[in-house]
Design a protein around this nucleic acid. Structure first.
Lengths: 156, 156
DNA sequence: CTGGCTGCAAATGCTTTGCACTGCG
DNA sequence: CGCAGTGCAAAGCATTTGCAGCCAG
């Protein structure tokens, strides 16, 4: 984790940006909540808890900066309000999401299924893919179970 | 096209909504610009051209209604501002997009590659997929060509 | 002292809401 | 009448921008 933080800092520095306490705090929050798909407001709250003087605009600016450097990815599920994910560099692309339309939970799944598709797109359309984004909407295991439960009761 | 309009109207009526002139005009605009990924403002402009008294809010309300009925799909590329696509019912799911990061052009490509993946997700995660969304970001054929051209000149 | 970075407040831009009005059943 | 649907203006919300101040090099 600490090493991860180190590596991220260096990425910033290499591009000529300073690692300010605010940016470090923002990165740290993203790192500590890697699985949570935080939105800007949530990142702000968490950063503010450690660093009460920070302004919301600064968090936005940090997130935009990091997103431009492809250190975090900015995602947009249907709700207004973007969400931010740390982007681990052992994944060449974004990871994919299972979004439950019942309970709103977002699960992550892994990559690599799409590489053949990317090759095909390049061949057929002359389109050189640099990134992709794949989301599935549906009903998660838990909500499925609840649904079946409800159906069972309705019968009895 | 006219039959298509008919079918869409019936979908509205069947759900208990009226086919008002405003809603019809909105549908017609979407139908006539099926390939264009219009945003709300653009739909509004086009509807207003035929129907000058309509209000922006009404267009938003129509689009939201149609989107709720899955007659149109509301998509969100990275730019602020949702875009709207008519959803043809011979495609069970959304179609996919090739988004050029150079010129912003959006191409559509067809579906059906993902069905095996959906099956796998249901087996492995217990997640019943009802819909998916797949976008590729990259550089389109034209921008690729321009880029190569530029590189060639730089050498000479 | 210079330029990057910050906080604050104001501005922006898309979208939604409140409300009074209208027309159809 | 009752109620869905409408237009207009105002509100709402996430995000961006302007600007003065600050700090490291």
């Amino acid at each position: 984790m600490a090493e991860h933080m180190d590596k991220l800092s260096k990425q910033l520095l290499n591009k000529g940006y300073k690692l300010t306490p605010q940016r470090e705090a923002t990165l740290r929050v993203l790192l500590e909540n890697e699985k949570d798909h935080l939105n800007a407001e949530e990142v702000y709250m968490l950063v503010k808890a450690k660093n009460p003087n920070i302004g919301l605009a600064t968090v936005y600016r940090a997130l935009e900066l990091l997103s431009g450097l492809h250190i975090v990815e900015k995602i947009n599920f249907g709700d207004g309000g973007a969400r931010f994910d740390l982007r681990s560099d052992d994944q060449p692309h974004m990871h994919h999401h299972l979004i439950c339309t019942r309970c709103g939970k977002v699960e992550e799944i892994m990559d690599d299924w799409l590489l053949p598709m990317e090759n095909r797109i390049e061949r057929e359309f002359g389109f050189k893919v640099t990134d992709h984004r794949l989301d599935f909407h549906g009903v998660c295991r838990e909500c499925n179970a609840k649904e079946r439960e409800r159906a069972r009761k309705a019968v009895s």
